[in-house]
């Protein structure tokens, strides 16, 4: 393992530590500073100001979300191609720019198709 290669992963580890540490620090500080006078009403779960539905927390959710998840997967795959492109974007010049624009334009047709078909409507 050469030093500069190991060094590039030091940032990854540092970011991971900061990310995890931030969560614990935020919750920890709030726990230290907070006043605690609990009573039944206060301890009840709430959701956007309304009483939550009593019952199983693992309620099945609407099938309507599924199309958004499917479309998300496809545009996620698109994003993967953008990563290596962004890395050498400067050296690729105008051709590289055109390549990616064509790629995105084709997928944009897909999005327009989904839109025109009303797949994005919330019915």
């Amino acid at each position: 393992m050469t030093p500069d290669f190991a060094q590039s992963y030091v940032y990854v580890v540092a970011l991971a530590i900061v990310g995890v540490g931030f969560v614990f620090a935020t919750l920890g500080i709030s726990r230290l500073l907070q006043l605690r006078h609990p009573y039944a009403e206060k301890l009840s779960p709430y959701e956007c100001g309304v009483e939550p539905l009593i019952g199983d927390s693992w309620s099945p959710f609407s099938v309507r979300y599924y199309i958004y998840a499917l479309l998300f997967v496809i545009f996620d795959v698109e994003a993967v191609f953008v990563y290596p492109w962004a890395l050498i974007f400067r050296s690729l010049g105008k051709t590289g720019f055109a390549e990616m624009m064509i790629f995105i334009a084709v997928l944009l047709f897909g999005l327009l198709y989904a839109w025109a078909k009303g797949a994005l409507e919330w019915q």
């Binding site: 199309i67 499917l70 479309l71 496809i74 795959v77 698109e78 191609f81 290596p84 492109w85 890395l87 050498i88 050296s91 690729l92 590289g96 390549e99 064509i102 790629f103 995105i104 084709v106 997928l107 047709f109 897909g110 999005l111 198709y113 989904a114 078909k117 797949a119």
Partner: peptide, 29 residues
Amino acid sequence: NLASLLFNQYAFPFELASLVLLVAIVGAV
């Protein structure tokens, strides 16, 4: 290196990948 191969030598297959994804979108919809 992988990127320069993908966007120079294999630019056509790369563009074809967008058509494959388009078919996936149409199928999902």
